[in-house]
Nucleic acid binder design. Structure first.
Lengths: 149, 149
DNA sequence: CCGTATCCTCCACGATACTG
DNA sequence: CAGTATCGTGGAGGATACGG
């Protein structure tokens, strides 16, 4: 971030903000947890400028929250997969989500928790973007939904 | 924030970031939950420019996370107290804190949970800034500490 | 003492154009 | 299609001076 002193603040919250404080990062992580991994998918989903997306993705890779992996050799193609450190950030997104649901869901659009059969306790998804029919039911099972009217 | 489109994003996370995404806001809320309420206390604690602090405080008041109250008539003095909406944001800070403790506490400085006798389950405090002796023990009781060496 | 107003700087972001 | 490079700008933040 702009202020170097954040790192010197010796507070875990302040230091965390150094790496995820930019709100684009939060939204990129959100989508990464939802399964997005390709550059263009992020770009289309978020409506972010490509140059900005490059910078943010690189920053998140540098911070160890995303992993850049070559998945195709010819032509070289990369995907951005969430790391364990990034997954550990999920509770933060969940609590932001709950707070946002309470105070900023006037139009009825909320996010919901889904049960992940793979063993992980909870995951998050945006209701109007991933409909129930689109969910890989082997991986996800909706346990609560509040759909847009 | 700079981008109006965040509000139009129809996602509770995105909308929340509209109000608390600026990292100064997070730190101000952190201190407000720790009991800070006076302008100068925020300023000294955070090392923030006074003009910036004015802007951020006003923004948080506008967003309904802080409440500006006149507590002295002559001369007029105001204090900034956290609102219920602000208190509801506390779980977010707690999860950020936990994540920060895990990944950004290399120097041993962590935050801890304290039991609030007033009935609320948990509160947070910064270990090196509020020592045990300074805690209002009627209000707080430390249940876990990991102090800087 | 408790802020606010003003000016300035800088950088995150967007737009655009470009490469493999 | 999957990005990177470059340029211009708005606004957040800092420094300073000032008002109640």
């Amino acid at each position: 971030m702009k202020n170097k002193s954040l790192e010197e603040m010796n507070c875990p919250i302040a230091r965390s903000l150094e790496h995820v404080g930019e709100w684009w990062n939060i939204l990129i992580l959100r989508d990464a947890m939802l399964g997005t991994s390709k550059f263009d998918d992020f770009q289309i989903n978020l409506g972010i400028a490509t140059s900005t997306l490059t910078r943010r993705l690189n920053g998140l890779v540098e911070s160890g929250l995303l992993d850049r992996r070559l998945y195709c050799e010819k032509p070289p193609r990369y995907e951005y997969k969430i790391t364990q450190k990034g997954l550990d950030f999920r509770p933060v997104l969940l609590t932001i989500m709950q707070w946002g649901n309470k105070y900023y869901a006037e139009d009825g659009l909320k996010m919901v928790l889904v049960d992940v059969a793979s063993g992980q306790p909870v995951d998050l998804m945006l209701v109007d973007r991933i409909t129930n029919s689109e969910i890989n039911t082997q991986q996800h099972q909706t346990i609560a939904t509040e759909l847009k009217p």
